[in-house]
């Protein structure tokens, strides 16, 4: 699984998008469906694969360093399953370009919060 940008460099600046467990699951399903589309552009496929990787990495970060996200949840009152999913502009654009992305995910990825 790639965690590199299409040009082979690191993904650059990653911005947090705070997603609950349901939204993360729905985003992963939409990305997998997009990757199975035979018409997906190879560059978009790399970015979509990186979105899948980040969904896993976000959960891993919360296991190793649970305190930072817990502090944000405590201040905002967000649910216990809300985590920061950090995406580059290209990764976010590739996700938003998925034709079957649910409107609620479009809103969440647009606003960055649940």
């Amino acid at each position: 699984m790639s965690a590199l940008a299409a040009d082979g460099r690191t993904p650059g600046v990653l911005a947090p998008h705070w997603l609950g467990a349901g939204h993360r699951r729905a985003l992963a399903e939409a990305v997998r469906a997009g990757l199975e589309d035979p018409g997906v552009h190879p560059v978009d496929a790399v970015h979509l694969a990186d979105v899948l990787t980040e969904l896993h990495v976000a959960a891993a970060r919360d296991v190793v360093w649970p305190a930072p996200a817990a502090r944000v949840r405590r201040v905002t009152g967000w649910d216990a399953d809300v985590l920061p999913v950090r995406l580059s502009a290209r990764e976010r654009a590739a996700a938003l370009a998925l034709p079957d992305l649910a409107p609620v995910l479009r809103r969440v990825l647009g606003e960055g919060r649940p």
Binding site: S2, A3, T10, L14, R61, V63, V64
Partner: peptide, 23 residues
Amino acid sequence: TPDSPLACAGAAVAARLAGETGE
């Protein structure tokens, strides 16, 4: 991270994991 769980991954994924935490 001392006193915390270990995370193991390929180089690029590990870089993403470690590079985006403030810890």
